[in-house]
Each structure stands twice: as C-alpha cells, then as structure tokens.
C-alpha cells in the first residue's frame, strides 16, 4: 500500500476534486491519498465524489486553515 499527498491548497472547488481524480487514476486499490485543501467546500465535494466512484474517506482533519482528507482508493470504476 502506498500513501501519497496532494497539495490542493488555495484551489477553489471543484479543482481539488479534479486533482484528486487525477491522482487516483495513478493509484492502485488500497492505496491511501491525503488531500490537503483550504477551500471548506471540499468537506462535501470530495466525500461525495468518493462515494460515487467507490473510494473510502477514512479521515477528515482540520487544523488552522487547512483541511486534510484521507482517502483509501477503491476498485477502479
């Protein structure tokens, strides 16, 4: 299992979702992705995208002005 981090800070939705999609395309099932964002909209948008595409959000952490969303990549859809 690999873990990668995506820097999506200062990007407005849906650009963090697009970055996440692009990164997931290079991952294998079971890999972890940590997406670091600043737009609060990601708290809804990324989990919604993950739900539709079969990935699991295992963590949403907020610190200062940043939000980290942890994703476990599911089977390819």
């Amino acid at each position: 299992m690999n873990t990668a981090t995506i820097d999506a800070r200062h990007l407005l939705c849906p650009l963090p979702v697009i970055r996440t999609q692009d990164a997931v395309a290079d991952c294998r099932p079971g890999d972890h992705l940590q997406v670091v964002c600043t737009d609060p909209g990601v708290v809804h948008d990324i989990p919604a995208w993950c739900r539709v595409h079969g990935h699991e959000v295992y963590a949403i952490e907020r610190s200062d002005n940043e939000i980290m969303i942890g994703i476990q990549v599911g089977e390819a859809d």
């Binding site: 407005l12 939705c13 849906p14 979702v17 697009i18 948008d45 919604a48 995208w49 539709v52 595409h53």
Partner: peptide, 10 residues
C-alpha cells in the same frame, strides 16, 4: 461551472 462539473460526477 463548479456546480455543473460536480453534478456530472454523479
């Protein structure tokens, strides 16, 4: 566009 794009994902 953000709304439309996110809708397309559903």
């Amino acid at each position: 566009m953000a709304e439309d794009y996110l809708q397309s994902q559903q």
